[in-house]
């Protein structure tokens, strides 16, 4: 039995009172070290679920806890990587990657040690750690560049490095590779997959891409048109195998995912992404 890292308990959430809620009595559990993907048609609430877990939105009813602590605001231990525009355009790559440590120093008088409930990053993260992540993601030569000078793939590497510098307990990713061209996307998918496996980092990846979900996640939560009361969970235990993309198991999982998405009632008349 794995430990539970993130737990959603009977939440109801909607953006407006006069529209049906996105989630209605929804529950979900994420175990330590598990790699999840969330997939579903647009408007199904997959990004909303990520924002709820990140503490950027609060449910109307029910609780969300990460490491057993209710998520009432964003926390440095819960990492979030967005599709784009997350970097600070006025800061160099180095200043972006060391933003977490700088926020930690900014709040140095408020630190509460290793308390999982503390929202702030630790006050003393050595610059060597940021340097190591830059090198690991192959962007150390770009340290003095600004985001506007980088390619889309390089920017996402900066965003990933910036989040991992804070050593998160849970990594949330909202379509992080969608805006990239195919070779760059596949390269980054491989690298993130390897990184998260190495560190046994619990990850939740929101995507609209069936292949990406199958390649990146051992468990896949399929959401449907709101209100979501429960998602469909599809297991993908073979994803860690070498050369998985060319295996029969991969084809089977993508077929299952497609079938699950087609059961979603409004998919038929939904516009192409």
């Amino acid at each position: 039995m794995t430990d539970i890292i993130a737990e959603i308990n009977g939440i109801t959430f909607g953006y407006a009172a006069d529209r049906p809620p996105i989630f209605d009595g929804f529950s979900w559990q994420v175990g330590a070290g598990e790699r999840w993907a969330i997939i579903g048609p647009s408007g199904c609430g997959k990004s909303t679920l990520l924002y709820l877990l990140a503490g950027l939105r609060q449910p109307n009813v029910g609780q969300i806890a990460v490491e057993g602590v209710p998520v009432t605001r964003p926390r440095a231990r819960i990492g979030l990587i967005l599709q784009s525009h997350g970097l600070l355009p006025w800061a160099t790559v180095w200043d972006n990657v060391t933003l977490g440590p700088r926020i930690g120093r900014f709040y140095r008088y408020k630190q509460t040690g290793d308390d999982p409930a503390a929202p702030y990053p630790p006050a003393a993260i050595p610059p060597e750690r940021s340097q190591a992540w830059l090198a690991r993601l192959g962007i150390d030569a770009l340290a003095q560049s600004y985001p506007a000078q980088l390619s889309g793939g390089q920017r996402q590497r900066v965003a990933i490095a910036r989040t991992l510098v804070l050593d998160p307990i849970l990594l949330l990713m909202d379509e992080p590779f969608s805006a990239l061209d195919v070779p760059t996307r596949e390269d980054l998918q491989r690298q993130v997959r390897q990184l998260t496996a190495e560190r046994q980092l619990t990850t939740i990846l929101v995507t609209h891409d069936v292949e990406e979900a199958a390649f990146m996640a051992e468990k896949i939560l399929v959401l449907h048109q709101p209100p979501n009361r429960a998602g469909t969970i599809i297991a993908n235990p073979r994803m860690a195998a070498a050369d998985f993309r060319r295996s029969a198991a991969y084809s089977a999982v993508t077929a299952t995912l497609r079938a699950a998405l087609e059961r979603s009632p409004t998919m038929a008349h939904e516009a192409a992404p």
Binding site: A54, R73, P74, L80, L82, I103, Y107, P119, L166
Partner: peptide, 16 residues
């Protein structure tokens, strides 16, 4: 909003 969301997720409160 993406900038705010990602910097908040690094632990930044209103002052930061």
């Amino acid at each position: 909003p993406e900038q705010l969301a990602s910097v908040r997720s690094l632990g930044a409160g209103r002052l930061a």
